[in-house]
Computed example of a mutant assay.
Amino acid sequence: MQVSMNPFGKFLAVGLLASLAGCTVVPGSHISTSPGWFLDEDESAEEAEPLPDVVQVHTITTNVLKAEPQDKAKPAPVLLEEPEDYDYVVGLGDVLQITVWDHPELTIPAGSMRSPSESGNWVHNDGTIFYPYVGKIKVVGLRVTEIRDLIAQRIAEYIEDPQVDVTIAAFRSQRVYVSGAVKQPGAYPVTNVPLRLLDAVNSSGGLTEMADWNDVTLTRNGQEYTLSLKAVYQEGNPAYNVLLRPGDVIHVARNDDNKVFVLGEVGENQPVPMTRNGLTLAEALSASGGYTQDTADARGIFVLRRAPQGSDHLIDLYQLNAKDATALILADGFDLQSRDIVYVTAAPLARWNRVIKNILPTFQTIYYGALAADRVRDLDE
């Protein structure tokens, strides 16, 4: 008995095959390497801004290997201003240690049970201290040398040629504050030794593993400034090791959000965290298992990046053609930025196979259904 397909089944099968031949709807996203890839014929101009107006395409060439490292912008000029002679100024809450030589009765001994900070002269809330024979002395805003001369001048009425020495036993009036990705965040005193950015970070225990040493914010008098600890630690740039002032707040940002996203035809689609030294395109691809040799289009390795604010476009698209594997050296010279998207597009054959894979089950169901109908009809005849 010969089985023949009914006209409807033949028509449907031919129609499905024809639809395969002209199919343009491919599962998943794709970036084409051909001109005009960004045009969508089905998209209405009123619904969205045309992609050609928001995307600027760049080719990753050997220029990335020739490019000189860019000099980081120096800190704001106001941060580079330093006094010619640094000297500590006494403030409220400081403790002074005053010694009059050859007159132990005027010097309060620290003793074995009391530290100098406990036995010294505390600067009261009215900015004064009390000292025998001298009485109240206004010391807030003065340097220790000025306080020494003032006490010697007044006590000279009672002691011939007094030898006076003044030191600070406890620095309590002025602080800087360190927060963020450091091991011991907190308040740290400003002393008679100049306190710089590196000193404050080291006093707080140093950076944690999640610290972003390129993103350090200094807040002074309500104004924020961005500094780089990398420039200090790794490059030895003294310009970033700024002199701190009382009330400064240092915040070291975390590195959690500094990542790039690797998608498309790679071993594993995943976010890749950036290291303290940055991340290149080659490193991001390697961390994701590389691009898949059997499905990826090596001509289409793309980096999508939000354009800088104020640009005449919204998206920068960088394309690397790695059809010749030696071009991958360019990937190692291309530095990624935080929140970049690395996308490896699929080869045409891989995209076609996905269309076949999705449509074939439907075609087989219809075909075998039509074949079964033919058999039933033949049996009835």
Rank of each mutant, 00 (worst) to 15 (best):
V3I: 15
L243N: 03
S112W: 09
R354P: 01
V201W: 00
V176Y: 06
E82R: 14
E41H: 10
Q153L: 11
L198V: 09
G300Q: 06
D324R: 01
P35I: 02
T362F: 12
A152Y: 00
V201I: 14
A13F: 10
D256E: 13
K74G: 05
Q337L: 13
R148F: 00
G120R: 06
Q56W: 14
P273T: 05
D161K: 14
G222E: 10
T362A: 15
S228N: 06
P273R: 09
A284N: 13
A350G: 09
K136R: 07
Q163C: 00
F171I: 01
P83Q: 09
F363R: 12
N6A: 09
D332F: 10
L16C: 13
K10V: 12
D126C: 07
R220F: 12
S288G: 11
L92S: 09
S4H: 07
E46C: 03
L96P: 11
I159P: 10
P35T: 05
Y318L: 15
V242E: 00
G206K: 06
V232A: 04
Q364K: 03
A211G: 04
L195P: 00
F38T: 04
V342R: 15
G186S: 00
E209H: 10
L12A: 11
K72W: 06
I151C: 01
K183I: 11
T280A: 13
Q153F: 04
S117M: 04
N255S: 14
P69N: 10
Y131A: 00
L92M: 09
S288A: 15
T191I: 05
I108G: 01
E157T: 04
A350F: 04
P162G: 07
G247M: 03
R114F: 12
I341Q: 14
T191G: 05
G247V: 09
E235Y: 15
S286T: 15
S179K: 06
Q293F: 01
A45N: 05
E268V: 11
T24V: 09
A253N: 06
I98L: 05
P50I: 10
P35W: 02
